[in-house]
Amino acid sequence: MTDDKERLDRAIIAMRVAKELPAGSCVNLGIGIPTLVSMFVDDESVVFYHSESGVLNCGPLADEGSEDIDLINAGGQFLQSVPGMAYFSSVEAFAMIRGGHVDVTVLGAHQVSATGDLANWMLPERGVGNIGGAMDLAAGADKVIVAMEHNDRSGNPKVVQECNFPLTGRGCVSLIVTDVAVLEPTPDGMVLRETAPGWTPEEVQEVTGARLIIPDNIAEYEV
């Protein structure tokens, strides 16, 4: 019934996440949809971007032909040199993360549980995976936002009651923005906050693995 309902595209997810970044905050963006978020942050907000490759206040990606191997982000993409950057070592990069100096991180996920457990580093069928900076970000950032598609390629829900993939962190996710809804994991369970245009709470529940707590005042996804 919901199979052919229209879902939001990745840019809209990123746009919705951008609204969550307070002016003056320091933000670490993961790979994939999270990377797109910076495109939708207005200049007035003065958001500071942190990359665990060892650079703060980093700017846009480098133009083709001007790649510098000594200026990359954590995804291995080349960055432009912009005013106000600072370089530092990996130990400082993660001191910033664990020490609570990174206000918001936006990550992708394989699964998020009703209480905010995050699984994003290994697909069990592969048997081996990369943790990279994900566990530190999950443990350290003040606010962890997950930006992802609501269901995987086979249609399985990624918002689940309990994760059955290996965890990245427990109870760490504070907000989930998907292509059909905005959800908030809480100790009492997954609260539905907003639905994508044309989606009812019941339809969101249908494609969700976690039991949703549906308050009276569900907003429409606002970007």
Partner: peptide
């Protein structure tokens, strides 16, 4: 063999 370590923990263990 592989010992998998979170990146920040790796940096901190080295420090």
């Amino acid at each position: 063999d592989l010992e998998l370590v979170p990146q920040g923990t790796l940096a901190e263990r080295l420090r």
